[in-house]
Design a protein around this nucleic acid. Sequence first.
RNA 1: GCUACAAACUGUUCUAUCGCUGCCAAAUUUUUGGGAGAGGAAAGUCCGGGCAAUACAGAGCACCACACCACCUAACGGGUGGGAGCAAUAGCCGCAAGACUGUUGUUACAGCAAGUGCCACAGAAAAUAACCGCUAUCUAGCAAUAGAUACGCAUGGGUGAAAACGAACAAAACGUUCGCAUUGGUGCGGCAACGCACUAAGUUAGAAUAAACCUUGUGGAUUGAAAGACCAAAUACAUCGGCGCGUUGUACCGCAAGGUGCAACUGAGGGCUGCUCGUCCAAAUGUCGAGGGGUAGGUCGUUAGAGGUAAUUGGCAACAAGUAUCCUAGAUAAAUGAUAGAAACGACUGUAAACAGUACGUACAAAACCCGGCUUAUAGGUUUGUAGCCCUU
Length: 132
Amino acid sequence: MPAHPFTFSRPEKLKSQIIIQQLFSSGKSQLAFPFRMVWTENTNPQSPAQVQVSVSVSTRNFKHAVDRNRIKRQMRECYRLNKQLLIDFLPPQHPQLAIMFIFVGKKHLPYKLLNRKLVELLTYLRQYYENR
RNA sequence: GCUACAAACUGUUCUAUCGCUGCCAAAUUUUUGGGAGAGGAAAGUCCGGGCAAUACAGAGCACCACACCACCUAACGGGUGGGAGCAAUAGCCGCAAGACUGUUGUUACAGCAAGUGCCACAGAAAAUAACCGCUAUCUAGCAAUAGAUACGCAUGGGUGAAAACGAACAAAACGUUCGCAUUGGUGCGGCAACGCACUAAGUUAGAAUAAACCUUGUGGAUUGAAAGACCAAAUACAUCGGCGCGUUGUACCGCAAGGUGCAACUGAGGGCUGCUCGUCCAAAUGUCGAGGGGUAGGUCGUUAGAGGUAAUUGGCAACAAGUAUCCUAGAUAAAUGAUAGAAACGACUGUAAACAGUACGUACAAAACCCGGCUUAUAGGUUUGUAGCCCUU
């Protein structure tokens, strides 16, 4: 358990193109508007983190980079502040999780709503692994 | 003073909590402290250059770009200054066409006097022009007029963006005069584009069109940082080396040599461990080691540069020179933030005003190898210019 739990540093970011390809070809998916969560278990982890996360906003819905950046930053912030919901629960020997959050909304929404919906998704994921 | 337009400059600030990416210093193996962290366009990716790889004797064709002159620049299709054309406007000369001077705007501003194409609608006709008309001659007729002839006449009409360069006089007909385009000569001024003066020719060439083909001149290798250079796990593989590929029994197949299965022994070697012991795994298409190319991944390229800021000097200016001073982002599924509160400025409402209130607004927009431009977007504020309106003198 790190001293400051609300971090989001490099090992926690999902970057590998190969894992992301796996994610979309064989991952499971859950929708909670305006988010769509795709996740999978990574059996060959490259980093020590238990969960790797990435966020995405489509160019089709948001033409300007400014808008995409802002939404992505807010999504990362939501995850950073709420990730303990999931990580505290997972046992240490559990395989690494790779998660991608995709913003599927067409316009910008208030932060409080984004926060609530992301908590919803994390809670869903937690229950999914509890019931197995 | 207000409004509109154009250009230039500027383009929010602070606090708290929790974070992100480099750097520096401690501590030392993941913590602590310090300090840094988007733009005028970072955008569009439209030009030019650096840089890199590949290609390259030389020449031509094709293709693409550019096109008044001089200068600036690393270079440019960029910039500065100048010239010319065109348009508008004011003044002035002229009967008119048109000329001159000033101001403003504008031009892809070499060639249609090499060839080809095209020229809507209207109109007889849109480029070997004869519809109406006109002239001459002949015929008919008293005459008005009608008809015929001329390879007759571009001079009047209407159409059109344009009608055979334009105008005056005239339908005067192989016109006269004037003006302008164009072509040439001489002199003067200017680096040059070009200008001024004098002078000759002057309807020829449609005084249309080249952001029509084209012609002439000049320039241009191709691909872009996902360029390119280097390091390189695991797994698999080319290659090389060490050790090993054994013994016994039994069953089956086979004429035989031999092969296959099962069991036991041996144990090259490996795992567990810091080492030994121990224990487990392990047998022939084996195992251990070396090893090259090379994948994931990483490092460099990569942020000190045609750099910024001052005043000085030279230049009308773009810009240049030396001097002083400053160091100012470096991510890579891509950091530079999120949330809360306050302030400032503005808007609206109330009010004479101060001021108060507000679920109000604070633009355009995010670096991605680096520079120089161009183009486009931009709330609010400041300055300058132009135009209009109102007030005062």
